[in-house]
Design a protein around this nucleic acid. Sequence first.
DNA 1: GCTGTACCTAATCAGTTGATAAGGGATCTG
DNA 2: CAGATCCCTTATCAACTGATTAGGTACAGC
Lengths: 230, 230
Amino acid sequence: MGSVVSERAQRPSADATRQRILEAALDAFADQSFDGASLRNIASVAGVTQPLLNYHFRSKADLWRAVVDELFDRLNVTLGHHLRSLVDVEDRIVVHHMVRRFVEFSAHNPQLHRIITSECRADSSRMDYLVEQHIRPLYDAVTTLFARLAVAGDLPDIPPAHLYYLLTGAAPTMFVLGPECRRLSGLDPTDDDVIRTHADAVCTLLFGATHPQTGEYLPPSPPLTGRAHD
Amino acid sequence: MGSVVSERAQRPSADATRQRILEAALDAFADQSFDGASLRNIASVAGVTQPLLNYHFRSKADLWRAVVDELFDRLNVTLGHHLRSLVDVEDRIVVHHMVRRFVEFSAHNPQLHRIITSECRADSSRMDYLVEQHIRPLYDAVTTLFARLAVAGDLPDIPPAHLYYLLTGAAPTMFVLGPECRRLSGLDPTDDDVIRTHADAVCTLLFGATHPQTGEYLPPSPPLTGRAHD
DNA sequence: GCTGTACCTAATCAGTTGATAAGGGATCTG
DNA sequence: CAGATCCCTTATCAACTGATTAGGTACAGC
C-alpha cells in the first residue's frame, strides 16, 4: 500500500487539517468564550500541536475571525439558498419561511448565538467586527425587506423593538441555553416541532396573531388595559 | 472633627469594601466572562489589591458565587416586592405585571443575562450552580403559577416552548446585546416605552393577541397555512 | 501598656497562556 | 541530484493568572 493514492490518504492534506482546526476552534470559542478557550486545547482536539495554529492562522484573534467568517458564510448560504427556492410565494409567507430557516439554523448551530453573546461588551474589538462585518448587513437587509413589505401594505407596521428581536432577541437565547433548555423543560431545541413553534412564536411577536375564522391580523397588544396602576 | 463619628468616615469599613469588590466583580464577570476577568483588574477597579479578594472571598470561584447570589437576591426581592403590591388584581394582569417587572429588572441589570449566557456550556460547574440554585426555582415557580391559572381557566394553554421563553428566551437577549441594540436600531433598552413594548411582546407571545373590539384572546398562531411546501 | 484580632499590602509562588525560533521531513521544481 | 517550499513539531520565551506567605497597622478587650 505505497502507491500514489495511498500517499494522499496518509497525509490528511493541509486543507483538511485547517478545517479540523476551524471546527475545534468553533466549538471551543462557543463553549468557553474567547479567553476561556486555549490554543493548546483547540490543537489537541484537532489532533495537532499548538504552534500549528499560529502557522495557519497568524494569531488567536485571526483564528477567531476565520471561525466567525466561516460560520456566517454558512448562515448566509443557507438563507440565500432557501430564499431563492421561494418563487411565486406571497411576501408574508416568505418572511415566515425565512424566520423558520433562521431558527432552524440557530438550532443546529448553537455556536452562532453563543459566540455573539459571549463577545458582547462595550469595548470589544471582536464585537465591533461581528456587528460591522456580519450582523449589520443582516439587520439592514431585514429592515429593508420589512420596509418594502410595509409600503406594499402586505405587513402591518412593525415596532422597531419587535424587529430587533428577530435577529437578536427571540430566536437566539433558547439555543444559547440549549443544554439548560433540555435540563429545565425537557425540550429539544433541534426537534422539528419545537423549531416550528419557535418560528411561529417569533412571527406572532412580529405580526400579531391571526384570527382563526376571519384570517384578520391582530397586532401584538398588551393584555393590560390602559389604566395601569402602581 | 476627630470624634467617634469621623473614625467611621475615615475607614471605609470592611462591609463597604466588600460591597465595592462585589460590584466591580459583577461588572467584570458580566463584561469579560469568568475566564476573561482577572482578580487584579477587579481589585484595581475596587481600589484594593488582589490578595484582598482572596482574603474576603476564599477563591475566584467563591467570589463568583457571591456575586451571583447577590444578583439573584436582588431579582427575587424586586419580584417579590411587586408581587405583594398586587392585591385584588386579576391573575392574568398579575402575570403581565410580573413579566413587566422582570423585563424592567433585566433592562437595568444587564449583567444578569450576560452572566447566564456567558456561563452556558455543558460541563460547567458554574452553570450547574446557576441552574440548580437560582434558575430552576424561578422556572418551577412560573410553571406552577401558569398551571394553576390554566386550571382556573384564566389563561389559555401555553406551549412549553413559549413558557420556556419567558425566563430564558424573549426577555434576555436584547439586554445581553444592550450596547449593540443601541448601535443597530437606536433603541435604548432602559427606555420605559421600550420596556413596555418588550413586556407586551412577551405576553403576546405567551397569550396571543387580544382582539381590539371583542377582547377575545387569540392564541399565537402561524401566518403559514397548513400546506407548507419545501 | 500589652495582647489579640480584623483588615489590608508587598513579595512571591507555580502553572498556564499566546507567540516565536529553530529544525525536521516530505514534496515539488529545476 | 540540489535547492526551495510547504507542513508540522520540539523547545523556549515573556507575560499573566490565581493563590499563598509573611508582615504591617489600626482598633478592642483586658
